[in-house]
Simulated scan of single mutants.
Amino acid sequence: MNKGPIGVFDSGYGGLTVLKEIVDQLPQYDYLYLGDNARAPYGTRSFETVYQYTLECVQWFFSQGCSLVILACNTASAKALRTIQQNDLPKIDTIKRVLGVIRPTTEVIGSFSKTNAVGILGTNGTVQSGSYPIEIAKFYPNIKVYQQACPMWVPLIENNEHQSAGADYFVQKEMGKLLQQSPDIDTILLACTHYPLLMNKIQQFIPQGIKVLSQGKIVAGSLKEYLIRHPEMEARCSKNGQLSFFTTDSTEDFDNHASNFYGKPVKSSHLQL
C-alpha cells in the first residue's frame, strides 16, 4: 500500500489557521499545504471558476501521493466540494477522499447556541452559495441562520492591515449589519479561515455573552474522528511528522504572510499549475 501525506488546500493563507490546529491535534502525520495565491481570492469568483481551480489543485495533491485532501477553504468547500465528490472522484480514484470545512462545523454548531439563532460571517461566495443555512438545517432544523458577507476583511488581512484603525471601521460595519438582523443571535461562526486574525476586533463590537467560533479546532477534531472511523484511510497516511508548503505565487510573499496565520515561520516552494 502506498502511503502519502494529508493534503490541505486553500486559495491563499487562511487554510494555515486550520492546518495549525490539525498539526496540534495530529502531529504524527505528514502534511502538504498548497495556497493557490496566484489566483486568490476565490470568494468573488463564479462557481465554475472555483470548481475548476479547486479540481486542478486536488489533482495535484493526488499526483503527490495524497489519498486524503482537506479543502481548508470555505469558498472551495461551498462551490466545488460536492461536484468533486460526486462527479470527479468516482472517475479519478474511488479510494481517494476530499473533505471540506463546512460539514464538520455545521454538525456541531447547534451545541453552542441556546437561542437557536446563529450568525455566519463569510466571503461573498460562501454567503451566496447558501451552504451554511442548507447544511445547518439538516442537523438543526430549528436553528435560524443569519448571514453577512464581509468582502473587505480578506484584503485587509492579506495586506497586513487587520490590526489597523481602518480595520475597525470595516469590522464594526459588518458586525452591525449582522446583529441588526436579529437580537437573538448568541453564536457567530467565522466561516472564512482568514477571519480568526480579526477575532480581537470582532469581540470589541459585539455584546458580551455572544460566542464567536473559528473553525480550526472543530475541523481538526472532526478529522481526528474521521481517521478513527476510517482505518483504511488512516493506513494510507504517512507518519513522519513532516510538513511541506507550496504556493502558486511568490514564495517570498507567501513566507512573509504565512507566519501570521500559522504562528510559526514557514518556508514554501513554488508550484506552477
Rank of each mutant, 00 (worst) to 15 (best):
V18G: 00
V212L: 09
P207Q: 08
I102P: 11
L121T: 03
V23I: 14
R45T: 09
I210S: 02
K114C: 10
T49K: 13
C192E: 04
I218W: 05
S268E: 05
G12E: 07
K173G: 09
T44L: 09
D255P: 11
P183K: 11
I210H: 02
N159H: 03
M1E: 12
I102M: 07
D30Q: 05
V98P: 04
F61H: 09
G166Y: 13
E232Y: 13
I70S: 00
F261S: 07
D186N: 09
I143E: 05
S268T: 03
A191K: 12
V23N: 06
T248D: 00
V171L: 01
M175R: 03
V219H: 00
D10L: 03
Q181T: 08
S77Q: 04
F245K: 01
Q59G: 11
A258I: 05
I206F: 03
S269T: 11
L213P: 10
G15R: 03
G122C: 07
P196F: 00
G130Y: 05
Q180F: 14
A76S: 10
R45F: 13
G35W: 01
P155H: 09
A149F: 07
I120E: 01
V212H: 08
E174L: 08
Y51G: 01
D24N: 15
S63K: 13
N142T: 14
S77F: 00
L34C: 07
